[in-house]
Amino acid sequence: MITAEQKPIDEIREMINPYKRILAVGCGSCVAECAAGGQKETAMLASALRMAARMNHEDVTIDEKTLDRQCVRDFVIQLDDVIQNYDALLSLACGAGVQAVAEMFPEIPVIPALNTEFLGETRDQGLWIESCQGCGDCMLYFFGGICPISRCSKQLLNGPCGGSKNGVCEVDPEVPCAWQMIIDRLARFNALGRLEMIYPPKDWAKKQGKGPRKIIREDQQS
């Protein structure tokens, strides 16, 4: 999932300042799971913004609507009926959602309410962990299902570095050393031999070789 966190209210207020009729648009997918931009969070933010506007004697309307997904046009189109009532959208989606909405409605400003963080998992209630960089060439097999590109602070493919101590990373004692985890896990499968080869430099062209990436699947096209 894509994780995000809400921007500070002051920053949001500054961005929406020029506009009088604003629709706060939540997203019911990833950012709902990470409690940043779902229906509940959208209602909270809109309520706080309305109060803030009233306290500052600003004549502003802030309505709310949450889409199932903001990054899929079939859902974004649901804004079609209401969009004429507003002069700005405040999107509580990830960066992809914000841009998908903006792309679809070029005539109206779309303002981001969240900071998009990373691709990760919900490890526990209230705890999300970065685990994937979307590198375009998954190497998890070699490393026992633990990604050194995402979870080693130095992205080592031939780790661990000299800063691994007692299972934690030198960068932050709260961060487990990915390489210690890789070694432990491969040892469990009797597959430590996989780490004896030198993994060659990563092919970053698969991530950024031709600029922004796209996936084309003819079998999925109409």
Partner: peptide, 28 residues
């Protein structure tokens, strides 16, 4: 060398490159 992580120094906001790791660099 891989180098000390950028967070330890006086430019903690720098992008850490780590395009190669130290072993790959030796090989190169």
């Amino acid at each position: 060398l891989s180098g000390d992580h950028q967070v330890f120094g006086n430019q903690p906001q720098a992008m850490g490159v780590f395009d190669l790791d130290s072993i790959q660099f030796v090989q190169v």
